[in-house]
């Protein structure tokens, strides 16, 4: 049963562009990007117990590096992508060293401060980043000579990247290393006594999450062909965190569902109301107060209850 459902779901994803219009295909591409981003944050929040409020740093920095290299320094997309992912991963390694000096709320505050500093830089260093105007007029890459300019081709590209990232992150958390990560989340002292190095486990996870955050940032800038400091803002980090928590942190697919919900809400709400930030804040209050374990665990709990009563 499970396999059939998975195959059907995969077929549905692949065939989506042949049934849906461009608007929905583009929406689906955005959801895929947001899902990769949320999944990478979930490695930290859900599996590592490290709540980061600065994950947008990785998305934004990868996007900015790629945008600058291709538009200003004449890089081809391939090398630009490699440099930007490598740069973002290196930054994650440095940020990890700084932020992992603390844990819990201290970690959260440091990640927030670091990302706010980057956000401020993107605004202020206007001769590099073009400040509030952002960098426009970017292009999409042409992997193997295939143009990604149509909605469907970009969707398939994003779907391929998202599938790889989902597989790799799933492997990551279900590996022996993933078990030690969960061990460090729940019982850091016991893990240390058992001979594990909690700091190293957290640091590697932080870097790995930064890497996938960078990948989502590349897709983000390819999709939008534009980059603005807001992609580095706390709002951007908070949207992803809301997706993770709404979907259920520490579950494998929950954050993807949560990210999709946040994105749909954002798209539909901004068609009717201007006040996305206020709505985001209200949804935060609602989710935390009413559904603290997230929507996916909440629903599966309900299902189990119904099965049990039968």
């Amino acid at each position: 049963m499970k396999w059939i459902a998975a195959v059907l779901f995969a077929a549905m994803l692949v065939l989506l562009p042949s049934v849906a219009g461009d608007f929905y295909v583009n929406l689906a591409s955005q959801i895929l990007i947001a899902a990769i981003f949320a999944l990478s944050l979930n490695l930290l929040v859900g599996f590592g117990g490290m709540t980061s409020l600065g994950h947008a740093s990785f998305l934004g920095v990868a996007a900015y590096i790629s945008a600058l290299l291709t538009s200003r320094y004449g890089f081809a997309h391939g090398p630009a992508a490699i440099v930007s992912i490598a740069g973002t991963t290196a930054m994650a390694a440095v940020f990890g060293v700084i932020a992992l000096r603390a844990s819990g709320l201290g970690f959260l505050m440091i990640t927030l401060a670091l990302s706010q500093v980057l956000w401020g830089l993107a605004y202020r260093m206007s001769n590099v980043t073009n400040g509030d105007n952002g960098i426009a007029g970017l292009t999409r890459p042409m992997p193997f000579g295939i143009s990604l300019d149509s909605a469907a081709s970009f969707y398939w590209f994003a779907l391929a990247v998202a599938s790889v990232s989902f597989l790799m992150m799933t492997t990551f958390v279900s590996s022996a290393f993933g078990s030690s990560l969960k061990g460090v989340r729940d019982q850091p002292r016991r893990m240390a006594a058992l001979g594990f190095n909690p700091w190293m486990i957290r640091w590697i996870t932080f870097i790995y999450a930064g890497f996938w955050g960078g990948v989502s940032g590349l897709l983000y800038v390819y999709y939008n062909k534009y980059i603005h400091p807001t992609s580095l803002s706390t709002t951007s980090s908070a949207e992803a965190l809301l997706g993770v928590i709404a979907g259920g942190s520490g579950t494998l697919s929950g954050p993807a569902v949560g990210a999709a919900l946040v994105l749909l809400l954002k798209n539909y709400a901004s068609a009717y109301v201007e006040r996305w930030n206020m709505l985001l804040g209200l949804v935060f209050l609602f989710i935390v107060l009413v559904m603290p374990t997230g929507i996916v665990p909440g629903l599966s709990k309900l299902l189990n209850l119904r099965r049990g009563s039968r």
């Binding site: 409020l53 959260l108 930030n277 804040g281 935060f284 209050l285």
Partner: peptide, 10 residues
């Protein structure tokens, strides 16, 4: 922490 963040957005 999350509700204080939400409140700051509001």
């Amino acid at each position: 922490v999350l509700v204080t963040l939400g409140m700051s957005f509001i």
